[in-house]
Design a protein around this nucleic acid. Sequence first.
DNA 1: GCGAAAACTATACCCGACTAAATTTTAAGT
DNA 2: ACTTAAAATTTAGTCGGGTATAGTTTTCGC
Lengths: 218, 218
Amino acid sequence: MNETPSLRERKKAETRRRISDHGSMLFYERGFDEVTIGEIAEAADVSKVTVFNYFPRKEDIFFDRVPEVVDLVTDTVRGRRAGEPVLSALRDMLVRHAREGHPLGGVDDRFVHFFRVVAGSAALRARAREIADELEAVLAALIDESGEGLPGRLTAALLVGAYRSAFLATAARQLAGERAADVLPDHVAALDVAFDVLARGLAPVRSGSEKHPPRDPH
Amino acid sequence: MNETPSLRERKKAETRRRISDHGSMLFYERGFDEVTIGEIAEAADVSKVTVFNYFPRKEDIFFDRVPEVVDLVTDTVRGRRAGEPVLSALRDMLVRHAREGHPLGGVDDRFVHFFRVVAGSAALRARAREIADELEAVLAALIDESGEGLPGRLTAALLVGAYRSAFLATAARQLAGERAADVLPDHVAALDVAFDVLARGLAPVRSGSEKHPPRDPH
DNA sequence: GCGAAAACTATACCCGACTAAATTTTAAGT
DNA sequence: ACTTAAAATTTAGTCGGGTATAGTTTTCGC
C-alpha cells in the first residue's frame, strides 16, 4: 500500500509528527489551555499558519491518532471471521487491546498523563465526546453494511455507550492513582458484563425478523 | 415550596426570561454563531455583564430549559410506582412526552427551528453532547440509589445511547422536511425496539444479586 | 425610612484561536 | 536544467467571548 514514501510525503509526515510531538510535550507539561498555538509553532520550528495547515483545530494536535483508531475498528469489523457477529469481533478486539496496554484499551500506567490533560481541559473533553460520536457513526455504517438485523445506529449507540462507561470508570481509577495492573481485572470484568448485556439484548432480534414481544427466557 | 416569589425573585426571573427570549429570537433568525452577546444584551435592554451574570456561557442562553428536563427525569424515577423498574418508568414517560409534543420528546413541528439552529452550530452541538453526558450522570446516580443490580453508569449509558439514537433519527427526519405526525409512529416504534433490547439485556441480571463472574462460553 | 446586600451598569480590556492574501521555498516530472 | 505545482512562510489582521473593576440603582429586613 505505502510503496512510495516520496521525499515530499516523508517531509510532510515528519513535519506533522514534529508539530504533534512538540505540542503534546507542551500540553503534558503545562496543560492544554495554557499552551498557545504560537508556542507550539515555535517549539516545532514551524510557522503558526503551518500548524493550522496540518491540524484544523487545536484539539486535533493532541488527539492525533484518532484516525488510527477508526481504522482499527473498521478493520476489525471488516476482517472478522466469516459468520462471526460484529459484536463479538469487537468485544475480543477490545479486551485484547486492554490487556496489551493499547491506547484504545486505556489501561496502562503510561496513559495517566494523557487522561490528566484531557480531564483538565473543557475543550479536550468536548472534542473527546465529539470523537466518540464520530466513531459511533462509523460503527453504525459498518453494522448496517454487515446486515445484522437492527438499525446500526441503535446497536452502535449501545456499543459505544457500554464501552465508554467502562473506559471512563477505568480512566477515573487510574487518575485517582491506582496502578493499571490493579485496575485491569475489573476493567475486563466490566467489559464482560457490558457485552453480555448487549449480547443478551440484541441476540433474539438478530436471528428472527418477526416481532416477538420480548419474552424473558426463564 | 415556592410560596414566596418575592419581588426580587420575580424580577430576577423576569430578567432571565427576557435575556433568553430575546437571545433565542435572534438565534432563530440568524443562527447561533452569527449573534453576539452584545446584541443579545442590547435586545434584552440589559448590560453585557448581566447576561453573563445569568448565563455563564453563551450556549446556556439557548439551552435554557435543560434544568427542567433534569428535574423531569429525576421526578419520574423518584416518583415511580413502588416496585416499578426504573427502565419502564422512563420508557412510559418518554413515549408519553413524545406523543404529547413535549420538548424532551422532540416530535413536534414547532421544534424544527430549534433543531435547525442546533444543527447549524458546532458550539451548540458540542453543548448538546455535554448535556447528554450530564443527564447520563444524573441517571446513573438515580439508578444506583434505586439499587437495581447493575452499576448505574452502565445502565445509564445504554439508556441515554438508546434514546439518543431514536431522538436524533427523528430529529433528522423532521429537519429533512417530514411532518411530525408522519414521523411519530416510527419514533415510537424505534423507542419500543430500543427499550425492548434494553429490557431483554438487563432483565436477567436484575434478579440475581450474586456476583457471578461472567463466564466466557467457549 | 435607613443601612446593607444584591442586582445591575458602564467601560475598558485581554487574549488567543483562527483567517486571508501575497510571497518564497522546495521537490517532482520531464 | 527548467518548469510547475505543492507546501511553507510572512504579514497583518479580525473577532467576539469572557473578565475585571468600580460605581450606581434597587430591593430587603427591620
